[in-house]
């Protein structure tokens, strides 16, 4: 049965998938211009502005099989359709508290209630909290497609501006955070509460007797995709757990960054912001 329903976006076909297999089937049939619809918090506004004009939407709302948080060994598997709000409010296994704390930074409550972790990763916005955390914590992104299942490390998943390793016909089904990060923090700055962060940073420290043994550092808003900041990681390795040491490492690490410029922030301002946020994230993580 075909219904014609009038909508604000450019005309498109709407399909509801019954389950994952059906969704993959539809994706295969409908071709590259079809888009899967998860929480719709990025795609639907873009369609209303007619910046995105998919030929068809494949609604994943019925795929309850992709809504879960499951411990696996030391790690944590999160189904792609798990909402931000679910992560924010879940009782997570030890060492994954950073995921709940970070989720609070995402948009506003209504956005967190609908938006999904898989949708956010698939969209691949450089300042998306999940993209930054995935890169930080060496998450693995599980994809299902016409050639079966594959797993892509986050480090290889984000290619550039809103562009990822997902192939046509593939769906993100799960993200795996392989190991706990008890001393991790994400922080960001936006001009208004709930806006996209101008810069988002996340750090995971391994500490030993007042020192930082090793550090992982990731940031969004400093390049076309979420990325690790190896210079900061090196500067933090062996540093004391003091604000001064954190500040020095942050300053040294951001000097070489070449962040994008837009109406809200120059490259120089983004560097300053990155240094400030790194210092604060380290303080939070090292506390």
């Amino acid at each position: 049965m075909v219904y014609h329903i009038l909508v604000k976006p450019a005309s498109y076909e709407y399909h509801r998938a019954h389950d994952l297999e059906h969704a993959l089937e539809l994706l295969g049939e409908l071709g590259e211009d079809a888009k899967p619809l998860a929480g719709g918090q990025s795609l639907v506004p873009m369609m209303n502005f007619r910046l995105a004009r998919p030929s068809a939407l494949i609604d994943l709302a019925r795929l309850d099989e992709l809504r879960y948080l499951r411990p696996v060994g030391d790690g944590l598997r999160i189904g792609a359709l798990t909402t931000h709000r679910t992560v924010e409010t879940a009782t997570l296994p030890g060492g994954f508290g950073v995921l709940s704390r970070a989720a609070r930074w995402i948009g506003h409550y209504p956005i967190r209630s609908r938006g999904t972790i898989g949708g956010s990763l698939a969209h691949g916005d450089a300042t998306a909290e999940w993209c930054v955390l995935a890169v930080l914590l060496d998450a693995r992104i599980v994809l299902r497609g016409p050639r079966g299942q594959r797993t892509v490390p986050a480090a290889e998943f984000f290619h550039g501006f809103l562009s990822t390793a997902a192939e046509p016909g593939e769906l993100i089904t799960e993200v795996v955070f392989p190991s706990p990060a008890p001393r991790a923090a994400l922080t960001e700055f936006a001009q208004r509460q709930g806006d996209f962060g101008l810069v988002v940073v996340a750090v995971a420290l391994e500490t030993e007797g007042g020192h930082c043994r090793a550090a992982r550092v990731a940031a969004g808003g400093v390049g076309s995709a979420a990325q690790r900041l190896p210079a900061v990681e090196q500067a933090l390795a062996g540093a004391e757990l003091t604000e001064r040491a954190f500040a020095e490492a942050a300053r040294a690490g951001v000097a070489e960054l070449e962040p994008p410029e837009d109406i809200h922030a120059s490259a120089g301002y983004r560097r300053t912001l990155t240094a400030t946020l790194l210092r604060r994230a380290c303080l939070e993580a090292g506390a």
Binding site: F49, R192, Q193, F196, D262, I263
Partner: peptide, 28 residues
């Protein structure tokens, strides 16, 4: 503190949504 209609050098308005035209909210 927040609101500004930016234009690029070709005269294209850069603040055409409430993501870029920053009205203060109850939080601000």
């Amino acid at each position: 503190l927040y609101e500004q209609f930016h234009y690029d050098e070709a005269g294209q308005p850069q603040a055409t949504t409430f993501m870029d035209y920053l009205l203060p909210t109850a939080e601000e």
